[in-house]
Computed example of a mutant assay.
Amino acid sequence: MLEAKLAETGMLKKLLDSIKELVTDANFECNEEGINLQAMDNSHVALVAVHLQAAGFKRFRCDRPMPLGVNLGSLTKVLKCAKDDDECTLKAADEADVLNLVYEAKNSDRIAEYDMKLMDIDSDTLGIPDTEYEAEVSMPSAEFARIVRDLSALGESVRIEVSKEGVRFASEGESANGSILLKKDGEVGRVKTAKEKKAEKARANGEEPEEDDEEEEEENEDGEKPKKVKKEKVKKEKGDEDVEMEDEEKDEEAFKANSDDEDEKSEPSDDEESGKKRKKKTNGSSKPAKKAKTTKSKGKGKKDDEEKTVFDFSMNSHVSLTFSLKYLVNFAKSTSMTNKVELRLSNDVPLLVDYDFGQGYVRYYLAPKIGDE
C-alpha cells in the first residue's frame, strides 16, 4: 500500500508542468525511499529523472515497491482541482488500478477526493552511470531560462563553451547570430571529485564527524595510498601547520576544536588541588560551547550564500558542445521549482541539467548534436 501526503499541492503541480511536454506516459516507481520517475521523450534524445524523497513528505508509507502508470496530462487536470496550498494525499492499494487523490484545505473543512485510472506501461529503467564531468556551471535558474529563450528566437541550436574566459552560449540563425558570455571574478577552480562533494554536503548539514568516519572507511577499503593521505592531513592539523587547500581549512578548525576540548579536560586533572585552577576548569568548559555556536553560525552563512545563487563554474578542461534549444527551453520550465540550476558537461557526453529543490530533484539529460545535424 502507498500513502504519501504532501504539505502543499503546488509543488507537485510545478513538477508536472515542467515535464509533461517531454513525457506523456510514465511510471512513478514507489518504494520506501520515495517516488522516482524516469522516462525518455519520443525521439529518445532527452531523458528525465525525477526523485521525491520520503523525508520531503508530511507522511509517507510504502509497504513494497510498486509502479504507478500515469498519464501526465490526466494527472495535471486532476491536480488543477486543488489549490496550491492544499494538502495532497496520494493513495494506492497493492496491485490497484486506481490512484486516489485527497485534497484538504488548510483554512476550511473542505475535503475533495478524486480517483484516477492507472495504466500498464512497459518501460525499462535505464542505469545512469556516475560520470566525472569536465566542467560544471552553477547559475540562477531564471538567468538560464532567459538565455535559452532569447537565443531560441535566433536559431535552433546553441553552442555551450566552457573555458578559462567564462561560459559562452552562442547561437547562429539565418538572419542573426547571438552570443552571451558569463564571466567569473577570480580564479577558475577545478571540478571536484565525488568524495569531495559528499564531504562538502556533510559539512553544510553539520554532519562532518559522521561523514569523516565514512570517508575513512571508504578510503581504507580502497587501498594503502588513501590511508597515507589521511594520516598526513591529521599530522598537519595536530602541529597547527597551515593547510593550503580550501577544503581542508574547515577540517582543521573542527580538529582544533576537538583538540582544545582534550587539552581543557587534561588541565584540571593535573591542577585539582588549587581553587584558582578549578575556576579555570569551569571557564575552560564554557569555551567549547562558544565554539559550537560559531560553527552553527558558519553553517547558516553557507545556506544564505546558496540562496543568493551567484554564477560560478569550474573546469578541468575546455568543453564545447552543441545542443537543441527546443529541449533546453523545455528544461527551463523547472525554474519555478528552485532558483538555482547546475549544468554539467563533458565532450561527447550528454549534458546534465540539474534542478535540486528541497524535497528532491529534477534532472534532464540531453544528447549533444554531432556534426551538422
Rank of each mutant, 00 (worst) to 15 (best):
Y103G: 04
K164G: 11
T131K: 09
V191S: 02
E143C: 05
N71A: 07
F144M: 02
V349F: 00
G34R: 03
K238S: 06
T131P: 00
K233R: 14
E187F: 15
E224H: 07
C62H: 03
N36K: 12
E244G: 08
S157L: 08
V158K: 00
V229K: 13
S152P: 05
K281M: 14
E249K: 09
S163Q: 06
S123N: 13
P209Y: 04
S175N: 15
E373M: 08
D270W: 13
F255A: 14
M245A: 11
S43T: 15
L2I: 02
E306C: 05
A145F: 06
E187K: 10
L15G: 02
D41S: 00
S269A: 15
G189L: 06
A82C: 04
A142W: 10
E143Y: 06
S259D: 13
K250N: 14
R344Q: 05
K280W: 11
N205T: 10
N316Q: 03
S286W: 12
D222V: 11
E241F: 08
L325S: 01
N42S: 12
S346C: 01
V162P: 00
Y327S: 07
T294C: 13
E113C: 05
S269H: 11
V23L: 05
R278V: 10
V243G: 15
E165D: 10
T295R: 13
K369Q: 08
M11P: 10
A292E: 15
G371W: 03
E267W: 12
E232T: 12
T335N: 10
M337A: 04
G189S: 08
V229H: 13
S18I: 02
K238A: 12
E161L: 13
D86A: 04
G173L: 01
V191G: 03
L328P: 01
K201H: 11
T295F: 11
S274D: 15
G10N: 14
D17N: 11
E208Q: 09
D94G: 09
K250I: 06
S163F: 03
E219S: 13
K250Q: 09
N177A: 11
N107H: 12
D304L: 10
A176G: 04
G239A: 12
G166C: 01
D212L: 14
A4H: 00
T295I: 08
E161D: 08
Y133D: 02
L6S: 00
N205Y: 09
A254V: 10
E208H: 15
E272R: 15
F169E: 01
E161N: 09
D120H: 07
V45C: 04
D222Q: 06
E217C: 07
Y103H: 07
E143N: 10
K296S: 13
D130C: 08
S314L: 06
Q38F: 04
L366Q: 03
D109L: 04
A202F: 02
K236F: 08
N31C: 03
G34K: 01
E21W: 13
R61H: 11
D185A: 14
K91P: 03
E237C: 14
K91F: 03
E3K: 13
K225N: 11
N71T: 02
S175A: 12
E373R: 13
S141N: 01
E8A: 12
A135P: 01
P209H: 04
D41L: 05
E373W: 11
E221G: 13
T9D: 09
A254D: 15
E373Y: 12
K276H: 07
L90A: 03
K293G: 09
S74F: 12
D212W: 15
K195E: 10
A145H: 07
A54P: 01
C30Q: 00
K192R: 15
